[in-house]
Every structure is written in structure tokens, then in C-alpha cells.
């Protein structure tokens, strides 16, 4: 069997889609954080000032949601929890300390990545729904003020959960060397695949 040196992990479309979501996320997060805490209000200047941050934020958010939906549909079937995943989670501390041994076989995604996927899906839907309810000048006035108050809290909590999730997501890509290449260039080394995602590696090797 001729072993390819690199394996394609993400197609050009998947990569493009990922980076549209990633960039709109950064823009939505910065403009949202500007309105969240005075210490971050200066982020509004990146968008042309407070009113512009307020105007652009929801539109950026909707674009992020729509492209995220494509990613979500594309990767949904790869993110179902299995018994092996639950077993993997028990050794998550070892994984964190770079001392993992005898882990259950990981497919294209490990349990941590699957939880991250679920967190993102939940947050995206909560953000969209609460965001529409509090969206001025278009929608907020048509909802009772009690609901708008609730939506604001939901929006803040789910945004913070998503931002912390993304900090973990980005850090994981910095931590696990060879990962960035998968999202930028699309491929990973065979050794990377064998080490981190042996189940997926076998599958890909078989189909080649």
C-alpha cells in the first residue's frame, strides 16, 4: 500500500466556510463585547463608533449563523456521541497533560471536539433567537419588554459561553501542532492522523 505523506482533512469548501464563520464570529464578538462591558467599548471604534457597532453587530451575527448552519449540517453526522467517546472523556485529564495512553480509538473527531460542536450549535441558536428579540430598531419594539429583558440575559450568557468555547477551540488548534494546517491548507500528515484520529486514519486509508 502506498502511504500518502499527507491526507486531506478539509475540502476547500469546508475551509472557506469555516473561515467565513470564524471571521464573522470575531467581528460579532468584538462588536458585542464593546456593548457588554465599558472596558471593551473601545472595540466599537473598529467599526466606526458606537452606533455603527450597534448597527453592524446583528447583521454580522446573521451572516455567521447562516454559514454556521452549513458547517453544522456538513459535520452533524460526525459529531454523534458514542460509548468510546464517553470512555475517552474519562481520560481527558491525561490528554490535557499530553500523557495520553491507551485511549479508545478516536474517529474524525474526539469527544472534546464533539462537545465543542454541541456547545456551538446550542449557542448559535440561542444567540439568533435572543438577538432577534432585542434587535433595534427592527424587532425589539414588537416584543413585550419582559421578554426583551430575558432575551438580553440569554444573549449575554450564550455569547460568553460561545466566546469561552472559541478560546478553547482556538487554543486547541495552537496546542495540537499540525492542526492549523488542516484548516488553512486542508491537509494533515499521516503521522498526525494516525496519532490523533486513528479511527479516521484507518477509514481514509481503507477507502484509498
Amino acid at each position: 500500500m502506498s502511504e500518502p505523506k499527507t491526507i486531506e482533512r478539509y475540502t476547500p469548501k469546508e475551509r472557506g466556510n469555516h473561515w467565513i464563520v470564524a471571521i464573522t464570529f470575531i467581528l460579532a464578538a468584538l462588536s458585542g463585547l464593546a456593548l457588554f462591558h465599558p472596558s471593551m467599548f473601545f472595540f466599537a471604534d473598529l467599526f466606526g463608533g458606537g452606533p455603527w457597532a450597534r448597527i453592524l453587530h446583528p447583521f454580522i451575527g446573521v451572516v455567521m449563523f447562516l454559514f454556521f448552519c452549513i458547517t453544522m449540517v456538513r459535520f452533524w453526522h460526525l459529531n454523534k456521541m458514542t460509548d468510546a467517546d464517553r470512555q475517552w472523556m474519562k481520560s481527558v485529564k491525561e490528554v490535557m497533560m499530553n500523557r495520553e495512553k491507551n485511549l479508545p480509538e478516536v474517529g474524525k473527531y474526539n469527544a472534546g471536539q464533539k462537545y465543542m460542536f454541541k456547545l456551538m450549535v446550542a449557542c448559535m441558536f440561542l444567540l439568533l433567537l435572543s438577538g432577534i428579540i432585542m434587535w433595534r430598531p427592527y424587532f425589539a419594539a414588537s416584543f413585550p419588554v419582559g421578554l426583551v429583558r430575558f432575551a438580553v440575559v440569554v444573549h449575554a450568557v450564550s455569547a460568553v459561553a460561545l466566546i469561552i468555547g472559541i478560546i478553547v477551540h482556538v487554543y486547541a488548534a495552537i496546542w495540537v501542532k499540525g492542526t492549523m494546517r488542516a484548516m488553512v491548507r486542508g491537509d494533515v500528515s499521516a503521522a498526525w492522523a494516525k496519532h490523533h484520529h486513528p479511527g479516521w486514519y484507518k477509514e481514509v486509508s481503507r477507502s484509498n
Partner: peptide
Amino acid sequence: VGPKEVKEDEKEDA
């Protein structure tokens, strides 16, 4: 803790 690196010549099969 440091990064997780995989050596290109890693033979170990999980």
C-alpha cells in the same frame, strides 16, 4: 504543559 507534537517518523499504531 507544552504543545502536542507528533514526530513524522512515529511508528506507533494506536
